[in-house]
Structures are given as structure tokens and as C-alpha cells.
Write a protein that binds this DNA or RNA. Structure first.
Lengths: 336, 336
DNA sequence: TCAGAATATGGAAGCGCTTCCAGTTTGGCA
DNA sequence: TGCCAAACTGGAAGCGCTTCCATATTCTGA
């Protein structure tokens, strides 16, 4: 049915090894042989079988990446950067969606490992013990992303969600906000959101602010933002800034303000986290924390390539940093 | 290093064939043997090598899916439905991102075919001739999704973007809108957007409306929606409804209206397409076309499973339909 | 009780490639 | 011209599994 390497070899009247060498760009093949083989490959429409190659070479040319939600633009960008870099080196990505559930992540890791990927990318830095153990035992390079940790499985590339949230809260304090509330979803617990909350709490502690009652929980969607707004408005102590763990929550809150005729930032300032396209588009523009996620993905890809090339990478931890984008939702660019 | 099937066989004092039979749930294995083998598998922590299995069985248990943008929630939902169904049958998805570019799609299809997937899912129904030829030649089941066509490569599951756009325009006409404009991006041409435009034009023709100058082009992002709004406002003939080929464009237009203090739908009604979560969350709520994309993905998965099971599927085309959600952006629920 | 069918089982062959080793050819240099 | 090293090449072995065939065992029923 399909053409095999052996058939190409026969037609070109060379050994199978020689065809393999041509395919893999080995340089110890004479130009005339190479040309002849390549001509046969073209004429016969030969396409190598990567399954067989993977078995023989014990390199599959495949990297697995786990993200918490396919369809979430944040993670899509990371995957895009990662995929671009790897693709340039002939490596393909296999993407798994673990839906923010550690148990699903564990199951997917177990499944994926049976496919013998050359490396793994994981979103986040907190994983089941079993997951870590399996990955370590596999012996392949692992990169964790989108956050930082001192105890990675192998390598990490990301930014400190803790530091970013803390910096944002501190900046808002400098801008004059004194009574803040923080809203995060806890239904899908993950280390990024958790660290953002911790960063906020750390800032509050440093600023001497009383945080009692100022931490809210809400589902991580637009409705969740609206619900949080409702609670904030009915809070005993008046609140002048709502810090949201994600842009989605923040945008949900802004929409609810619009519905209720509440001035943003006049009556209540709102800030988010992630800098989704939506944050720049909405009016008022949303103050948020921005990270170059495509670049982060690319860095992850380069780290993996380094490791795959056998070069012991000189680092195991890369901080890509973050930027706070101040927009109108917290009063930026608005005359006092 | 890692445990192989042969080692399990040796420990269990059976042949490799028997272990294989146990693994694959063949029923002609005596219970005592099965138990012994399974005990060894557990004790030794054996994990099958799917690469080797794929080569030997010429079934990889892998399905490739191509979407135009990873990180786009619409496609994420389809993939989720598809992946869920396939996963229940031990099949894993390999996702490719072709970025709305037919050439990239072709390249990815070529690459993916070298991995010998058991089946393929493609977004959209228009593809390069080479792409179609490669897929047909591969002989594996193919499902195209997210639109309909009379000339599928193999199977299709989707809805008629044409019919939906036409129905929306007709409904808006019945609601009293007489001067419509339609905006779509042409920078990333694809059959879904193209068919939506055609559906709109068909409705206009049927309604006897003059469409000259009422079709706009704009990048498919929030800014594109804002830009379209600007053009509509400066159009010679006053326009009372802006139909957008995507919710993103529509939301961009609504944001721009808010910035300019233009009443929606008072001064201008706006409708979108896709029913993103954003459409229900924004105020005014966005009238749009809704499709159960998760269900669509599930149907695609079932079609593939049917085909893989060798059952000649009794259909090659499934229409999952669409729903028009009328919301406040076109006056729904607003007292006249 | 025994032939014949049904059920279990071992093990070889092979899936399509890479890789290694041995053998052949070519090239360089004195 | 001769000799050794370097460059090239063929082909066997093997990657870890499935599958088929032949054999061994157990179960039927007359």
C-alpha cells in the first residue's frame, strides 16, 4: 500500500541504511548517491513512518504539553510560542487538556508517557506526587511554566504570580487606594491563582492593611465577577478598589457596574490579571498584569531543545518577568 | 531501564502473546493466567509502549485534529467534545494549529500523516487540493466540522453558516431593521466567514434590499469592530443594524459605541455570531447565533469511532443546527 | 470411553525504521 | 607506486509490540 524505505532502497539500488542516512541528513553519503535516493523518494512519493522511526531510534520527535483549558487564550499563546520553536526543529506537540484538575493531569501524564514523548511541558508548578514521580522516573526533560518555584521537577520558565500580585497591590496603594478587596476563584484551585492571592495578602500585611473580609471567592467567569461586585457593594466597610485574580472576573465586574450605573473608577476602581485582548478593548480600559506569553512559550521551547541536545542547560529556572498596565479602570489617564 | 512486555512474560512464565492478549482484553485467556499476568504487570510497574504497539498493530490510537487557532474558545469547545468521546475509547488527540492559513494546514497534514493517525478532524470544509488528496490517499476516516458542504472529503458534521447568517438577517428584517451593514474579516479568509457573508447577501437579495456599500472588511478583533463602527457612522445612508461576522467584531463595535456615547440598540442595533460567553455577559447582551459546539465535537467523535469500527456509517453529513439568541443589542426584551 | 470441537498457550515472524559493524572504495601523502 | 586513513556503503540486528499458526489441553456428547 504505502511506500516503505526498503522499497526506496531497492529502487535506488542502495542499502536501507543509506536511505536512512539520506533522510536524516547524515553527511557521510556521496552526493551522487544522495541525489539518486532523493530522486527515488520524490518519484515514489515516499513518506517516512514516524512510528517505526520512533521505535527504532527511541526518539519520537514529539513533545507533550499540558494546559488547564484548551480554548483559553492565555495558554493558547504559550503553546503557540512553544510549538513554533519546536516545529522549527521538526518536533511536534501533543496537547492535553487537564481542565484544572490534578487527577486528570495525572491520568493524562500517565497516558502520554506511554507514547514515549521526548519531553514534557506542564502548566503550573504544583502537581500530584504521583505525577511528579512518573515524570521524574521517565528521565525526559520537563519544563514547568506560567509560574515560578524553587522546587521544580526539572526546569521552570515563568514569572512570579506572587510578586506580580503584590506589586499590583502596592502600586494601587501608592495611587491612593486604601480599602481593597480581592476576588479569586477557588473552585478550580491552581498555583497561579493561589500565588496571586498570597501576593495580595503579603502586600496587605506589609502595608498594614486589615484584610479581614476582603477576600472573596467566585467562579472564574463573567458571572463570577458580577457576583463579586455585588458582595463588594454590600460590604460593611466601603471599598474603593476591587482586585480580581483574572481579567475575566474583572470584566464581569465592570459589566455589572455598567448595568447598575456604577462609575468605574469614580465610585469603584477595578483591576485584573492576564492582560487579555479584552482588557485593552473594554471601556474603561482595564488595569492588569501583562506577561509576554508567546515569548514565555518560546523560552520553554528553547530550554527543551537545549536539554534534548544533551547540553546540560546552565539554568533550570528562568523568570520572564511581568508588566503592570495601568489603564482607566483604576484612574490612569483620567484628569483628577 | 523500563520494563518491557517480554520481561513481564518471563516473570509470569507465559508467552509474550499471552501478555499481549491480557493487555488487550482478549477473552480467550484463562482467568488464572490473566490474574497472574496482571499481578506481574502491577508489581513490575509495566507500562506498554504505544509506539511499538502502533507499529505492530498499525493502529496508533491517535487522532489528529486541526483547528485554526488554539486559544480560540469556539474551537476549544469542539475539541473538548471530540477529545472526551475519543478518550473514552482510549484514543488520544493530537492538535495542530494552522492559524487560518491553508498552506500551513497542508504542511501540518503532511507532517501529521507521517505519524500514522487512525483518523483526522479538520475545521472547515475548504482545503487545498493537495491537502484533500493526501487525506484521501491515506485511506483513514476524515471528519470535517464547523460548516457543511456537499463535497466532503469523507464525512462532515456542522451547521450551515450560510443558513444561519441568512436566517439572522431575515429575522432582523422582520424585527423592523431595514438598513443593515455586514462586517467580516477577509484577512484570514475561511469558509465559515465566507458563508456567513454569502448568507447575508442572499437574505438581502431575497428581501430586495440594496446591499451596495453595506459590506465592510475589518480585522477580526476588537479594534476591527471599532473601526467598522466608525465607517458605519460615517456612511452616507443611515444604517440601523450592524451585523458582524463574529462576536469579537460585534463586541468591539459595542465598546466603541460606549466610548462615543452611542445608544445600542437605540441609535444602532448590533448582532454577532458564535455566542461566546462574552455575548451573554456584556451589556447590552449581544444578539448572536449559537451552536452547541461541545455536542458538535462529540458527534464528530462518534462518527470517527463508527468509521474506525469498520461500520460503514449510514450518513456522511450531519447538521447539528443553530439557534439565534436575541438579546438587548437588537432590542430584545426592551419595551418599545 | 474416545473422537472431535473448543479453548489456551507459546513462540516465531514481522511491523518500518535506525544503527552498528564489517567490508569496500577512494584519497592523500611520502 | 604503495600504504594507511578516511569516506562511503550494505546488510543484519534489533526497537517492543501484535498476530498468526501450530501445539497442547480441556471439554463435549454419543
Amino acid at each position: 500500500m504505502t511506500v516503505t524505505l526498503a522499497e526506496v532502497a531497492k529502487r535506488a539500488r542502495v542499502g536501507t541504511g543509506t536511505v536512512s542516512r539520506v533522510l536524516n541528513g547524515a553527511r557521510n553519503v556521496s552526493p551522487s548517491t544522495r541525489d539518486r535516493v532523493q530522486a527515488c523518494i520524490r518519484e515514489m512519493g515516499y513518506r517516512p513512518n514516524l512510528v517505526a522511526r520512533g521505535l527504532a531510534a527511541s526518539r519520537t520527535g514529539m513533545v507533550c504539553a499540558l494546559i488547564p483549558a484548551i480554548g483559553a487564550p492565555q495558554h493558547g499563546e504559550v503553546i503557540q510560542g512553544l510549538g513554533d520553536v519546536l516545529h522549527e526543529h521538526g518536533i511536534q506537540l501533543m496537547i492535553g487538556d487537564c481542565g484544572y484538575q490534578p487527577d486528570r493531569e495525572e491520568a493524562i501524564v500517565a497516558d502520554f508517557l506511554e507514547r514515549r514523548p521526548d519531553a514534557f511541558y506542564l502548566t503550573g508548578v504544583v502537581h500530584n506526587a504521583k505525577t511528579r514521580q512518573m515524570l521524574r522516573a521517565s528521565g525526559i526533560p520537563i519544563v514547568e511554566g506560567a509560574n515560578l518555584t524553587d522546587d521544580p521537577i526539572d526546569c521552570v520558565v515563568g514569572y512570579s504570580n506572587f510578586a506580580a500580585a503584590r506589586a499590583l497591590a502596592q502600586l494601587m496603594h501608592r495611587r491612593g487606594h486604601r480599602t481593597m478587596a480581592f476576588v479569586a476563584s477557588t473552585s478550580d484551585p491552581n498555583d497561579r491563582i493561589g500565588d496571586r492571592l498570597k501576593g495580595y495578602l503579603a502586600a496587605c500585611a506589609e502595608l498594614g492593611q486589615d484584610t479581614r473580609g476582603l477576600v472573596l471567592e467566585s467562579a472564574n467567569n463573567f458571572n463570577g465577577g458580577a457576583a463579586a461586585l455585588d458582595i463588594v457593594l454590600h460590604h460593611a466597610a466601603p471599598i474603593d478598589l476591587l482586585l480580581c485574580a483574572t481579567d475575566v472576573l474583572a470584566v464581569g465586574a465592570i459589566f455589572e457596574c455598567q448595568r447598575r450605573g456604577i462609575a468605574v473608577p469614580g465610585r469603584l476602581a477595578i483591576a485584573g490579571f492576564d492582560d487579555l485582548p479584552l482588557a485593552a478593548a473594554i471601556s474603561p480600559g482595564l488595569t492588569t498584569v501583562s506577561v509576554d506569553r508567546i515569548a514565555m512559550g518560546r523560552v520553554a521551547g528553547h530550554m527543551l531543545l537545549q536539554r534534548l541536545a544533551g547540553r546540560q542547560s546552565p539554568y533550570t529556572k528562568i523568570d520572564v518577568g511581568f508588566t503592570i498596565r495601568e489603564r482607566a479602570s483604576t484612574g490612569a489617564g483620567i484628569a483628577p
